[in-house]
Design a binder for these strands. Structure first.
Length: 608
RNA sequence: GGGCGCGUAGCUCAGUCGGACAGAGCGUCGGACUUCUAAUCCGAUGGUCGCGGGUUCGAAUCCCGUCGCGCUCUCCA
């Protein structure tokens, strides 16, 4: 579509795709040029101090190196900055065009080619921002909630962050698989299985809150737990014996017991999976922990642990001393009855990951932080390269008023209800706005359904994914479902606007292939292009740090500069040359917004 | 009590591997729809960056202390 650069040269298509890395290349050029200048002045090059300047500074990158050299050189920073700028040559670079100073800062300016290539790349490449293949396979494990009942909002941070991390790593060039680790061998599932087999429909409290299997079966789980807490001690003892029998059956690999437990597990998990698909959070594999018991790997691993220097046999149980790793208490890996623990099985699980993937990322709540540290230590003791294992830890979601969420007690807001409410509110918005709508594209009933779903669910996801995972967040309806600025709909709206303009332009016969980036001269146009140029670097940093929320922030910033551009720079009513270039800018914006949204897991509507 | 995390505007949050006057949105107040979708834009208002020390040319950011909140310290998961 966009042909030729403003200097008239032609480049092959493959090279356009390479130029998806303009900001990153520019950064390298700045570092190279600055190093060279410092070297020729006999100054140290270990800390270049390259950073992004504040918004009101008209440079793309800057260096604060002059501050640090003041002591070495014995001159004031502004003087040093000038010396460096004079020594620095911007000759021979693609994107570094000029250097100047502003007080103690050395500022670096980009060439026209930087903008030209950004526009070419972003407007023509639907995958704009995607980084080159790393060759790494990465398994992202997230959610992994025990299959005890409906997914509630307290758990929602995990699939939302997890899915975004997986999307991000994928977009950063990795070969990603998404796993849900199913705890099907623990006491909770034994209790559930016993309760499911013991009680009848008549024994249960109330009707299922929703027509789906996990809402039905969770009533058995709650009934079982209530019984164990309150029933006659003799009856409780009898029940406990049955529960223990189930646990031991699993441990011994008894197929009949396994089948009984899986009857419950598979049903409940199936329902939870349907709920998660609404987000949507989908998985390549549901990995059951019983797998690592039945294949003998947990047993083998325990034997190997016993052989290590850290293993001790105390109080009839095999334990691991982890003082060297900063843990005071020992980690028991075999109970006194010789059965394995959750962590033992998880160790086998992680060695399996190491055998099959180059990297393993786990998204988990802060309540699992200690356990994950012990896991890492034990994996290290077993001789694994624990650098392959990375965690993303998130804090709890509070309800206003400090109410806690519990599947067992049946308290908390269910994710299904949250999503239904979000979609209902979004539908109200759509219908309200329909009256004042100026665009005549005749939204029909199915469009309204689609928009309500995209906007409602998008708002919930964005509200969660846009915040730093380490911070505790308070869930409030009005805030999560605010459809205005700093929300998913605000960004989605930009995408819809881009699509609308593209449609109108096509109908009017406007052609972006004639675009000449040199005619984009207003601040609004340059700001938009400069923001789009940063996108690949944003993806790179976010992926390195496993921080999808920075992509959410970028998407919002991009939407803001686009809306200013939209306000000030008409596309269809501009003269043909300017219109064509602006249309290319709209297409570039659409690609960047669509891809940023897809990373954070929010749909990009073509109309709304 | 020990370990870890968090504390930024009335509210919700960016910024946190030291750098240009601490930024948004919501709220409040005031403007802009005969103009590609007003889920928009423009302006005003609003801050002892929990508190106290320290390091530094420079600290919301690093160090020490302290207060508050959360998580955690099971032969649970």
């Amino acid at each position: 579509m966009v042909r030729g650069r403003s200097d008239g040269s032609e480049r092959p298509l493959a090279a356009y795709r390479e130029s998806a890395y303009m900001f990153r290349q520019f950064r390298e050029e700045v570092e190279t040029a600055l190093s060279a200048a410092l070297s020729s002045l006999d100054l140290p090059t270990d800390d270049l101090g390259v950073e992004e300047p504040p918004e009101d500074v008209p440079a793309t990158l800057a260096s604060s190196v002059a501050f640090r050299l003041a002591g070495v050189v014995g001159a004031p920073p502004p003087k040093i900055a000038v010396d460096i700028a004079e020594e620095l040559s911007a000759e021979g670079y693609d994107y570094l065009a000029a250097v100047d100073t502003q007080g103690p800062y050395v500022n670096f300016h980009v060439s026209d080619a930087y903008y030209d290539d950004t526009l070419e790349s972003a407007a023509t490449d639907e995958a704009y921002g995607r980084l080159p293949a790393t060759g790494d396979s990465v398994v992202v494990e997230h959610t992994s909630a025990n299959p005890t009942g409906p997914v509630h909002v307290g758990r929602t941070r995990n699939p939302v962050i997890g899915d975004a991390v997986a999307n991000l790593l994928d977009f950063a060039g990795n070969d990603v698989e998404r796993h849900y680790y199913v705890n099907d061998a623990g006491r909770q599932m034994a209790v559930f299985t016993w309760a499911y087999e013991t009680f009848d429909e008549d024994d249960l409290e109330g009707e299922p809150a929703r027509e789906r299997v996990e809402y039905d079966l969770v009533r058995y789980y709650r009934k079982g737990n209530a019984f164990l807490e309150a029933a006659d001690p003799e009856e409780v003892e009898r029940a406990e014996a049955e529960i223990t029998e189930i646990l031991q059956g699993i441990e011994e690999g008894d197929e009949e017991t396994y089948a009984r437990v899986e009857t419950v597990v598979d049903q409940v998990l199936g329902g939870m999976r349907e709920c998660l698909e609404r987000l949507p959070a989908e998985f390549d594999e549901f990995v059951k922990e019983t797998r690592f018991m039945f294949d003998g790997s947990t047993r083998d691993l325990a034997e190997r642990l016993k052989e290590t220097d850290h293993a001790v046999y105390e109080e009839d149980a095999w334990q691991l001393e982890l003082d060297d790793y900063g843990f005071e208490k020992n980690l028991v890996f075999l109970r006194s009855d010789d059965t394995s623990l959750y962590t033992t099985r998880d160790l086998a699980h992680h060695e399996w990951k190491f055998d099959n993937y180059d990297r393993a990322v786990t998204v988990l709540g802060e309540d699992h932080k200690l356990q994950s540290g012990q896991l890492r230590a034990a994996l290290d003791i077993l001789g694994n390269d624990v650098n392959k294992l990375e965690n993303v830890i998130y804090s709890w979601v509070n309800l206003p008023g400090g109410e806690t969420m519990s599947t067992r007690k049946g308290t908390g807001v269910m994710l299904d209800d949250l999503l239904d409410e979000a979609i209902d509110r979004a539908r109200d918005e759509v219908e309200t706005r329909l009256e004042g709508r100026t665009r005549d594209d005749d939204l029909d009933e199915s469009d309204i359904d689609r928009i309500a779903r995209q906007v409602g669910i998008g708002a919930v996801r964005y509200d969660i994914v846009s915040k730093q995972p380490t911070k505790t967040i308070t869930f409030e309806w009005d805030q999560a479902l605010n459809f205005e600025a700093q929300s998913a709909p605000y960004i989605q709206y930009v995408h819809a606007r881009c699509c609308g303009i593209a449609d109108e332009a096509a109908a009017a016969g406007l052609d972006a292939s004639e675009a000449d980036p040199a005619v984009l001269t207003t601040d609004a146009e340059r700001d938009l292009l400069a923001t789009i140029a940063r996108f690949p670097a944003v993806v790179e940093t976010a992926a390195d740090d496993l921080e999808p929320h920075t992509v959410a922030t970028f998407a919002r910033e991009l939407a803001e500069v686009f809306n200013t551009f939209y306000r000030e720079c008409p596309v269809l009513d501009a003269d043909e040359e300017v219109g064509a270039a602006r249309l290319a800018l709209v297409e570039a914006s659409r690609n960047a917004v669509a891809n940023a949204l897809s990373i954070v897991g929010v749909e990009a509507p073509e109309s709304m």
